[in-house]
Amino acid sequence: MTKQDIIKPENLVYQKPKLLNDTPMHYCPGCSHGVVHKLIAEVIEEMGMEEKTIGVSPVGCGVFAYKYIDIDWEEAAHGRAPALATAIKRLWPNRLVFTYQGDGDLACIGTGETIHALNRGENITIIFINNAIYGMTGGQMAPTTLLGMKTATCPYGRDPQLHGYPLKMTELAAQLEGTCFVTRQSVHSVSAIKKAKKAIRKAFENSMAGKGSNLIEIVSTCNSGWKQSPEKANKWMEENMFPFYPIGDLKDI
């Protein structure tokens, strides 16, 4: 049997979602962004919302999300994605509106926009990639960097006396009256990917049903920033990130 005998439509068991472009991604091998992009593309397709979705991309590694998922996008200034999404959803109530933001964007420079959009109960979904580091700018300390963790701007490890404490935005979000679904997921294993996809689907459905704000934190790896192989980064995440950022639903109304 040759390769050509195998590549036939009837043998197809899996394919890349149509909404995912052929553009080569700029993400590093081992990075979680690519998997999350694929899940978002799959869910939009499965919901039949290709023509009714508007995404808001952040500043950070996710800035080019608009190059990879074939929907309409607006690219926001650093931290401001939830403000854009607020207006888009209010002006287009029948559209699916989501933001895609990293920890620096969402939990640092955009903390105000994030908390207030969630607290107003805007019918949007915020997808929050938490890899505890600034990836795009070269591995500086993030609001979510763990205590003791070394980065380019805390080279001797995060010290609470100097840098304060890692911020648990998802726990904060769960306290807000405007949120209906707040969950923390990961995409480091097949089962985790399946759960994360279900969470995205639920959040998108909530947004369309007008149930309120949705926040999905995806605890992620940045093996380049962490200076680890993809495999080691996954292990490090399980051993160090999960105890501080436990996986699971925090709120589901």
Partner: peptide
């Protein structure tokens, strides 16, 4: 005002 202008941007 920062959020307001970015809402204008989004809209």
């Amino acid at each position: 005002e920062l959020a307001a202008i970015n809402m204008v941007y989004g809209g």
